[in-house]
């Protein structure tokens, strides 16, 4: 089961992802991230502190927006990955292309860098 919510904190779009992101639930994750990117949000905070598992389809969602993030000068930061999920990002090499932070504070300071 996936739990996904989105909200705004001032100019930051916050997406909270919890539970398991598998092949079928990755569609919901894709919709939320797509809405944020197409909605012209320039600061996107993805809270994964309650994320237990992510399949290759879920990783594919994050991967598929790397180019859009770069082309549109969007700041997207993922924070709170547990050790196991972080390891999955690292083995695939996504830690080299996406901004991953361990805490909310570090993620917010990345978004608010001038």
């Amino acid at each position: 089961m996936i739990h996904i919510e989105s909200s705004f904190e001032e100019d930051i779009k916050k997406i909270t992802v919890g539970g398991d992101v598998d092949a079928s639930s990755s569609i919901q994750l894709d919709t939320e991230i797509k809405n944020a990117i197409e909605g012209d949000d320039k600061k996107i905070l993805v809270d994964c502190s309650q994320l237990k598992y992510i399949s290759s389809a879920g990783l594919g969602v994050f991967m598929s927006y790397i180019q859009d993030i770069e082309n549109n000068n969007i700041r997207l930061v993922i924070f709170g990955l547990n050790e196991k999920v972080l390891n999955v990002f690292e083995i695939l090499g996504l830690d080299q292309l996406l901004t991953l932070e361990s805490s909310l504070e570090a993620a917010k300071s990345y978004l608010n860098e001038v």
Binding site: M63, I66, Q67, L92, G93, L94, Q96, L97
Partner: peptide, 16 residues
Amino acid sequence: KGLGLGILRNGDFHKY
């Protein structure tokens, strides 16, 4: 270090 195939499609893949 490494990066999955198909993740970077813009010519920068070799750096990883």
